[in-house]
Every structure is written in structure tokens, then in C-alpha cells.
Nucleic acid binder design. Structure first.
Length: 280
DNA sequence: TTCCAGGACCGGG
DNA sequence: CCCGGTCATGGA
């Protein structure tokens, strides 16, 4: 059998990667499970199915693509060492324990930028619906009803009315704006990775529709800059209720973005509507 | 029907 | 710097 033929592969031990938590924690919007718990996703034109098989996380892919997927799941980073530093407040310790097995995916930068533009003042089920429509309408079909995320060039060539079927509301303008900046090279991902993070954040928030929060989500999930700390309404509630009033996320160190993900995932699964809304 | 969602922008204080 | 109003949409 050729190495390009798909076969069942061992990706890693289940202790290293919890696929349910990783896909459902709110960092990504295009991994979906079937009735038996098998998740399927598409990254850079590659299709992966992944599931739990006892001690190991198993997946269906070509052997010569296994390294690609190990990189996507960030398997070479020691998350347990990073998590051990999340000791206080006690609430954070609890969130880190609850989120054990989450890994921050190395998503495609343009997809992360675009999906988190869509995420603003929106709920996760609806974000997923809009993103799915975006892919179905403008992405290349890979068969089986699976579509690639459309390129920035493809979106940049569209008009506002072309995006009407998305029902994305005022976000459509922001999507087009970002797509044009990426497609024409004025927003360069390699450059953003190279320059100091604060400069990168300042640069991307110059784009219309990208503020501090979406900019941080893009940097964390799209550029894998692990010390970005996006603060949304859930994080605001958690910070107010469980952290000192003068708490500075910088104190959490180089993996503060991971801490943020643990907190978000815990708060959203345990505290649905228990607190008053902050702002939206 | 009203409220809310992984916000951002804008004007005024 | 912070505040409130506004933006478009649909699930709960």
C-alpha cells in the first residue's frame, strides 16, 4: 500500500489530547462529530477523521501526513508543564483541571481571522452556521459534502451583496475588509509573527471590525502566540467573580492564552446564564 | 416577546 | 479613559 493511501493511524495517547474538549472549547468552529463521536475536519485541503480508541487517539489519514496533523494539534508542546503553573486563584486551578487535554490548535491564520470576525457579539451555534455557509458557498468541495475554507483571494473578489446569503449582518463588511487586506498583502502573516506582539496587535486592530478581543483571538488561534489573553463577556464575568480586581493576565506567563481557554471552557459549561450580562 | 451572544465603532462627558 | 447607543441576526 502506498504511503499516500489513507489508513488508521495512532496520533498520540488520549492523556495528551482530549478531542471533545479541544474541538468543543470554543477555539474552532469547523470540527464536527458524527453520532459515534468521530470528528471530521479539513485543514489546508486535508481531510482528517479522528476518534478515541482506548489508550490512543486514532485517526484516518495518509501516513505521510501524520506529521502535519501532529503539528496541527501542537503535540510537541508540553501542556502539562504549562498547566502546573496555573495554581492561583483556586478557580483557575479548577478550570485547568477541568480543561486538561485541551490543546491550542495551529489553525490557518486567515480562517482564524475570518471566523473570529464572525464571532463578535454572536453565539457559537450561529457562528458555526455562518462559517459553514461561507464554506459551502465559496469554498472548494472535496467530496462527501466537505468544503475547504474559502481563500482570502476568493472572498476579496466578492461584493457585499454576494455575502448576503450568509446572514452575517454587519460583520459582512468586516469580512470583506479583512479578506482584501490579506489578499493584497497589506496584512502579512509572516510579518505579524516576526514583529513584536504588541505591534502586531496594533496593526491588525487598524482593520475595520477588528478590535482588541478579535485581534487577540486571531493572534492566539491563528498565529499561535500563546501569551495572548482574549477577554469576551464570559471572561469578564469570570474575572470579576473569581479573580482579584487588580489581576493582570501577564502574571500567568508565556501560556496565559491556554489559561484563558481553560477559563472560557469551564465558565461556558458551568455558568450558563447564572450571572447578569456585561455588555452586548 | 424579550433577551442574549467569544464586539466594534462612534460620539460625548 | 470610560460610558451609552447602535449595528444585524436568530436561537432560547
Amino acid at each position: 500500500m502506498s504511503v499516500s493511501e489513507k489508513q488508521t493511524m495512532r496520533l498520540c495517547e488520549v492523556s495528551k489530547l482530549n478531542i471533545e474538549k479541544t474541538f468543543e472549547c470554543g477555539q474552532c468552529f469547523r470540527w464536527n462529530a458524527d453520532a459515534s463521536g468521530v470528528y471530521t475536519g479539513i485543514v489546508q485541503g486535508r481531510i482528517l477523521s479522528i476518534w478515541n480508541g482506548g489508550e490512543d487517539v486514532l485517526c484516518l489519514c495518509a501516513p505521510d501526513e501524520l506529521a502535519f496533523w501532529q503539528d496541527y494539534f501542537d503535540l510537541s508542546t508540553d501542556y502539562s508543564a504549562a498547566s502546573k503553573k496555573f495554581t492561583q486563584p483556586e478557580y483557575l486551578r479548577m478550570c485547568a483541571d477541568f480543561g486538561e487535554g485541551i490543546r491550542i490548535l495551529r489553525q490557518e491564520p486567515w480562517e482564524a481571522l475570518c471566523t473570529f470576525i464572525i464571532s463578535q457579539c454572536n453565539n457559537i451555534p450561529r457562528i458555526k452556521g455562518i462559517v459553514e455557509n461561507l464554506c459551502r458557498l465559496f469554498g472548494k468541495e472535496l467530496g462527501d459534502g466537505l468544503f475547504e475554507f474559502p481563500s482570502s483571494e476568493k472572498i476579496a473578489a466578492l461584493t457585499l451583496s454576494d455575502l448576503d446569503p450568509l446572514r452575517a449582518g454587519y460583520r459582512s463588511e468586516y469580512i470583506l475588509c479583512a479578506a482584501k487586506a490579506v489578499a493584497d498583502g497589506s496584512l502579512n502573516f509572516d510579518e505579524l509573527r516576526r514583529i513584536p506582539p504588541e505591534e502586531a496587535h496594533a496593526k491588525i486592530t487598524q482593520l475595520r471590525g477588528i478590535g482588541s478581543k478579535v485581534g487577540n483571538c486571531f493572534m492566539l488561534y491563528g498565529l499561535h502566540i500563546m501569551d495572548r489573553f482574549p477577554v469576551d463577556v464570559w471572561m469578564k464575568r469570570a474575572l470579576k467573580a473569581h479573580f482579584p480586581s487588580d489581576f493582570d493576565p501577564k502574571a500567568l506567563g508565556a501560556f496565559s492564552g491556554l489559561a484563558q481557554q481553560y477559563i472560557f471552557y469551564y465558565a461556558r459549561t458551568h455558568e450558563k446564564g447564572e450571572s447578569e450580562p456585561i455588555n452586548c
